[in-house]
């Protein structure tokens, strides 16, 4: 178990190095463009621009380099650890396939429930977008939606445990999950705070890059973990 956990943490760290590259390449240009919007166009959306934005005296160089890496590494290592624990719980108990297949299932389900679904309801905003007065409500709604998504996963998986047909199992499980999450998405408040003056293609570019960053982090953590366990995890 200890070894499995170490491999998970290591996988997360390796993945955050890869993700750092993607974030620099894909994410930073959108982020910089949005910050430029914020400083040049501040007269057009004065109410939307928070005062403490966007560097607070910290250089962009520090934010886009060490800051970005530390942030990604912290989340990556946490993800690797959680992946290792989930793998330990699921293997031989919930999933009975090979190491790689088990890791792939956990990573894919986790990515869908933790990233994709919350992102559909509460997509990330670039700098210069977002009303600082609602940050409390937005953050709370986001984490509540995320917690519900995770909480629904367990019952949805256990509800279909006894069903023999693999196809029916997946359909019913996905149906339960989609039903609960759709209901929650309708009930929870939505926030429409994008200034009409903010370029739409830049907003899209930014949001697509957040998906790319998360997809890279999750996929490379899963791939690294699967590989490490097959290679070094035989004696667990």
């Amino acid at each position: 178990m200890t070894r499995l956990l170490v491999l998970g943490l290591l996988a997360g760290l390796l993945a955050s190095v890869v993700t750092f590259g993607v974030a620099r390449l894909v994410g930073e240009p959108a982020l910089d463009a949005a910050i430029a919007m914020e400083t040049t166009d501040s007269h057009t959306h004065a109410t939307d621009t928070p005062d403490l934005s966007d560097t607070g005296g910290m250089s962009r160089h520090l934010q886009a380099g060490p800051g970005l890496f530390v942030g990604l590494a912290a989340v990556g290592v946490a993800l690797g650890g959680i992946l290792a624990i989930s793998f330990a719980v699921a293997r031989g108990r919930i999933l009975h396939g090979s190491t790689r297949a088990t890791v792939a299932w956990i990573t894919a389900l986790g990515f869908a429930a933790v990233i994709v679904v919350p992102m559909l309801k509460f997509p990330g905003n670039p700098p210069a977008v977002g009303n600082p007065e609602t940050i409390g409500a937005r953050t709370l709604a986001y984490f509540a939606f995320l917690a519900l998504s995770l909480a629904t996963l367990g019952p949805a998986v256990s509800a279909v445990k006894g069903i023999a047909s693999r196809r029916r199992k997946m359909l019913i499980g996905a149906g339960i999950y989609a039903g609960v999450m759709s209901g929650a998405a309708i009930l929870l408040p939505s926030f429409h705070e994008v200034d009409p003056a903010f370029p739409r293609d830049l907003l899209w570019q930014f949001r697509a890059s957040t998906l790319a960053v998360q997809a890279t982090l999750w996929a490379s953590t899963g791939i690294a973990f699967g590989w490490l366990v097959e290679r070094f995890g035989q004696s667990i």
């Binding site: 403490l52 966007d54 560097t55 934010q63 800051g67 942030g71 989340v75 953050t139 957040t210």
Partner: peptide, 28 residues
Amino acid sequence: QGAWSVFAGTDVHEFVHDARHLLGFPCH
């Protein structure tokens, strides 16, 4: 230091600022 703060100031927020944005968290 976005919605809630354990430590006063904005240094934690600013240091991980880019990671927070690019991971898609609600930032500000």
